[in-house]
Design a protein around this nucleic acid. Structure first.
Lengths: 157, 157
DNA sequence: GCTCATTCGTTAGTCCCCCTAACGTTTGGA
DNA sequence: TCCAAACGTTAGGGGGACTAACGAATGAGC
């Protein structure tokens, strides 16, 4: 077991007020916490966030091309290749050429993929809960609402 | 100028609701927007966020060792080396051995560093404003408060 | 006074996410 | 028919956060 590094993360009380109130800094740090927690929970099932996002998108939107999955998940097309490689290798997704347009693959969710998605949904819920522990239900809703406005504004165009 | 990549970022309307409401995902995406905007504004002056954070910490807390700067900024000690290398090379900070404890360096803000900090403060304010454009003043305050609670909770131990 | 764990600065290198560049194939519109 | 565009794919870059290890220096407990 490696020694715990005492010099990695900021001492909250010692951070200058100017930095402590910067939205960009707070977003970066909170995103870091969120990543750590989400990855840890999903890793318990040997999964990643990209795999989860792709599986959810297949369930919600039905079979789709890789390009469509990229658009809907925000995962880059060049990375989607590897994600689908993992998902098909483990039997959670199927990838077959589209006979109507031979440039495309049609990706579908398998039964095993649906089952796994149920497990991952639960893990992700746990991760959200751990992340948002210090906030009330109303505050969690407010935070999500504000972040959605931010994301929508900066994603447009 | 390179072709704009039309396949990088998610199409907001096509993202499944389950993903669109995940706090961890929204934090990651918003942090990405924040990083892009902050970097762009600071780059106009040839600066980085780590440089800015270090300069602010020197102004707020006065001269300090590199370890103290790491604790106060959250920048890893191994990365702080390079940041101070840049700041001293450009004459914005000074780094001298501590006669009382020869393991340490005492880092101080120079006059040129103070002047530069004034410029960067303004650029950072502009970046925050661009980032938070879609939110009212009250909403910006609320967002910052919620994120502070999140960060403090997950930074403590 | 010594010993030894600890701290400090530093270097090197890893991992993950996001992104660019380029390519061969296939399609569809001018 | 020709050419621009979309598709999947491969290779690689760059930044941020981190681990591991090291020599030098310090200081607390014996």
């Amino acid at each position: 077991m490696p020694e715990r590094d005492r010099h990695a993360r900021a001492d909250p009380a010692a951070v200058p007020p100017r930095l402590r109130s910067l939205a960009s800094r707070l977003l970066g740090r909170s995103a870091g916490h969120a990543d750590r927690i989400s990855n840890a929970h999903l890793a318990a099932a040997g999964a990643t966030r990209w795999q989860y996002a792709t599986l959810v998108t297949l369930r919600d939107g039905g079979p789709a091309s890789q390009a469509a999955l990229s658009d809907r998940t925000g995962i880059h097309r060049s990375d989607m290749v590897a994600v689908l490689g993992e998902l098909t290798e483990t039997g959670h997704a199927r990838r077959v050429p589209d006979p109507a347009d031979r440039r495309r693959n049609i990706v579908t969710l398998t039964e095993a993929g649906q089952a796994r998605l149920g497990v991952l949904d639960h893990l992700v819920d746990q991760a959200q809960d751990e992340l948002l522990t210090p906030l009330s239900a109303a505050e969690r809703g407010e935070l999500v609402r504000l972040l959605q406005r931010l994301d929508e504004h900066h994603s447009a165009r």
